[in-house]
C-alpha cells in the first residue's frame, strides 16, 4: 500500500478541500479509539489501542539495573517500536521504526515526562529500568499519535514493585528485597505527553490521517504535547515546506487537540480501570476486529 493512482489522490484531496473525507469526517475530526489495559499478564504494565484500523500493543517490563554514569541519580527508560510487516514496505518500515523510536526515546529520556529520579533505588548503584516495547500490529495511519497514546495508557497501568535495600552478607555488598505485588507503586503520568500529527494537504490542515490520506499529504508536523500545553518535541515530515506564518497557528491547534485527546484518554483509562477489575482478561486480541 505504498502508492495511489493519480485519480485516487485527486479524489482524496478534493474530499479534504470540501471538508468531507472518505469516512465522513471533517478535516479536524478525530477517529474514535478504544483502549484496554492490563492485557499481558507477564508484563508490569500493558495496553492495546485501537484507532479505527490501527492496532497497537504496548508492554512495559521493569528490571533492576545500573544507572548511567552521566546521571547516577536517575533511572532509565528504553523505548523500542516495531511495526509488523503488514504495515508497509520494508524500507519505509525500517525508517518508520527508527523515527518513532527516536521520537519516543527522546521524550522519555529527558526526565520531564516521567520523573526519572523516582526510578532510582540506590544512588550510583541500582535503579529501575523501564523497557517500553511497542508493537504495531496493523496500521491505518496516524502511528505517532497511536503509539504515544498507547504508551501513556500502558504507563498508567504500570506498577513498579516496592523494594528495600538491605546490606549483604559480606561488607560492602548490597541486596535488594522485592515486596509482593500488592505493595507495588503507580507511576505519575501527569506530565506524559502525547503526539498530535497535523498534516497539510494543498493548504488545508488535517488531523488523524488514514493510510491513504498519508500518501497525499504535502507536509506533516508531529507535536508532542502534555496536558498543560508544554511541548516535548516537534518534528517535520514530508516534502513540502510549511508557511512560517502558519507555524504558530498549527502549534496552537495541536495544543487544543492535545488537551481534548488527553481528556478523552484519561476518562477512558479511569473507566477501564474500574471495569477491568470486574471482567476477566481477554487475550484473544489478534483475531478481533
Amino acid at each position: 500500500m505504498d502508492r495511489l493512482s493519480f485519480s485516487e489522490q485527486c479524489f482524496i484531496i478534493q474530499g479534504i478541500k470540501d471538508n468531507i473525507r472518505n469516512d465522513a469526517r471533517t478535516r479536524l475530526d478525530y477517529r474514535y479509539f478504544s483502549i484496554e489495559t492490563g492485557i499481558l499478564p507477564q508484563t508490569n504494565g500493558s495496553s492495546r489501542l485501537r484507532l479505527a484500523g490501527t492496532e497497537i500493543v504496548v508492554g512495559i517490563k521493569t528490571e533492576i539495573g545500573e544507572p548511567l554514569k552521566e546521571s547516577p541519580n536517575d533511572g532509565r527508560i528504553e523505548v523500542s517500536v516495531e511495526c509488523t510487516f503488514s504495515t508497509s514496505e520494508r524500507r519505509s518500515k525500517e525508517v518508520l521504526n527508527q523515527e518513532i523510536t527516536a521520537m519516543m526515546q527522546k521524550i522519555y529520556s529527558g526526565g520531564k515526562a516521567i520523573d526519572l529520579t523516582n526510578l532510582s533505588i540506590l544512588k550510583e548503584k541500582k535503579c529501575w529500568i523501564l523497557y517500553i516495547d511497542v508493537l504495531v500490529l496493523r496500521s491505518d495511519g496516524n502511528l505517532f499519535d497511536g503509539v504515544s497514546l498507547a504508551i501513556k495508557a500502558a504507563l498508567f497501568n504500570t506498577r513498579i514493585p516496592k523494594v528495600q535495600v538491605v546490606p549483604g552478607e559480606r561488607s560492602g555488598e548490597i541486596e535488594i528485597e522485592v515486596f509482593d505485588e500488592q505493595q507495588s507503586e503507580k507511576i505519575n503520568i501527569k506530565n506524559v505527553p502525547i503526539c498530535v500529527t497535523i498534516s497539510q494537504v494543498s493548504g488545508f490542515v488535517v488531523i488523524d490521517t488514514t493510510v491513504y490520506e498519508e500518501l497525499c499529504i504535502d507536509s506533516s508536523l508531529v507535536v508532542a504535547i502534555d496536558s498543560s500545553s508544554n511541548l516535548f518535541g516537534i518534528r517535520k515530515y514530508g516534502n513540502d515546506g510549511i508557511e512560517s506564518s502558519s507555524l504558530i497557528e498549527i502549534i496552537n491547534l495541536a495544543s487544543k487537540a492535545g488537551q481534548n485527546l488527553h481528556a478523552r484518554l484519561d476518562s477512558l483509562l479511569q473507566f477501564e480501570e474500574k471495569n477491568r477489575i470486574q471482567n476477566s482478561l481477554d487475550l484473544d486480541f489478534i483475531h478481533q476486529k
Binding site: 504535547i225 512560517s244 496552537n252
Partner: peptide
Amino acid sequence: SLSEIAHILQTGEISQLDMI
C-alpha cells in the same frame, strides 16, 4: 524568499508561550 519552513525540530521540554 518563500517564507516557508523547510524543517523544524524541537526536543526537550518547552512551554507553548516560550515556543512561540
